[in-house]
């Protein structure tokens, strides 16, 4: 399969993730859309590094997975703290830095 097909699928997945970040109000769903964007980027890395006969892209995917795991722990900790404070996880309620 041509590399452009993989890049287009990765682009579609990345755009869907970005759309989910923009239109959803639920903090957990926003977080899951963010994970979707990470995965689309990973797919692009693996496709390009397979096409150019390199290994660096595959190594980078492992580091992205490390960052995603760390981010999952932090983001879900924030979600729990936010729910405890507000009783909801609607991100429109996170308005204490607004004046």
């Amino acid at each position: 399969m041509d590399i452009n097909a993989y890049l287009i699928v990765a682009g579609i997945l990345f755009s869907i993730g970005g759309l989910g970040v923009l239109i959803r109000k639920n903090l957990i769903v926003v977080f899951m859309s963010l994970e979707l964007m990470f995965n689309a980027a990973n797919l692009g890395f693996v496709a390009v590094s397979g096409y150019l006969n390199l290994i660096s892209g595959d190594i980078f995917v492992i580091f992205v997975m490390v960052v995603a795991a760390a981010e999952a722990a932090i983001a879900l900790g924030i979600a729990i703290a936010f729910y405890r404070e507000k009783g909801t996880i609607n991100i429109d309620k996170a308005n204490e830095l607004k004046w």
């Binding site: 580091f63 490390v66 760390a70 900790g77 729990i80």
Partner: peptide
């Protein structure tokens, strides 16, 4: 990356 994971563990503990 290993230091990042350690910081993430401490951060999640403090947040929760």
């Amino acid at each position: 990356a290993s230091i990042l994971l350690l910081i993430a563990i401490i951060g999640a503990f403090i947040f929760a």
